[in-house]
């Protein structure tokens, strides 16, 4: 029911509707297109949660295998991306619970466009002029700091700060209120401030 205060939001049509329909009918090429399309976005989510390439690869394989098996039960109440993103978050959190605190970190490559980013220039301006070393050091520090957070806090930081997802969407995916998302973010940022204190000086 529409009201003046809360006008019903128009849902964006799912751009993947055609591909999903074909994949549901057994078209593996269509499903492959969805895999190719969303692997980069989901990679970021899983990698920043696990900080390990092999774990990221394995979790993503599990995510897409599960998505393929469950596709016929996908009811299109959300977009395909939101659906598979939720699967990824849940499977990553479950994986981390099983993995425990084992920390075998592996660093990603970095797009050299980072050198032109004002935030990077600011962060490294007082440091050693050999930029490549600083990029690696920055990555390591950030990864270690993120791994110090609990899985739930790391999830909100990954989704909001790194992937730029709005609070409302994070709350839907995690099944918590927006207030909980904001308070987790606040607490996580305070923790990260402490961990990164030395690097920022």
């Amino acid at each position: 029911m529409k009201s003046k205060k809360n006008p019903q939001k128009k849902r964006k049509p799912d751009e993947d509707k055609g591909l999903v329909a074909r994949a549901r009918n057994g078209d593996t090429v269509a499903f492959d297109e969805l895999v190719v399309k969303y692997t980069p976005r989901l990679y970021g989510l899983v990698y920043h949660m696990t900080s390990n390439h092999e774990d990221t690869h394995d979790v993503l394989q599990d995510v897409f295998a599960k998505a393929y098996r469950s596709l016929k039960r996908f009811q299109e109440k959300s977009t395909f991306y939101t659906w598979i993103y939720s699967i990824s978050v849940n499977m990553t959190l479950n994986f981390l619970k099983k993995r425990g605190r084992r920390r075998t970190m592996s660093l990603d490559d970095v797009d050299m466009a980072i050198e032109r980013d004002p935030d990077f220039i600011e962060a490294t301006s007082k440091s050693d002029p050999v930029r490549e070393v600083n990029i690696t050091e920055l990555q390591e520090r950030l990864n270690i700091a993120l791994q110090e957070l609990s899985d739930d806090h790391r999830a909100v930081v990954t989704m909001f700060d790194i992937q730029g997802m709005p609070h409302a969407e994070i709350s839907k995916i995690l099944g918590v209120s927006e207030g909980t998302v904001r308070s987790r973010l606040f607490y996580a940022h305070r923790q990260l401030q402490n961990y990164l204190e030395e690097f920022r000086k």
Binding site: D109, D119, L142
Partner: peptide, 10 residues
């Protein structure tokens, strides 16, 4: 600093 992680690639 966290935003800079967007430049990371596999």
């Amino acid at each position: 600093l966290l935003h800079l992680k967007r430049y990371e690639q596999p």
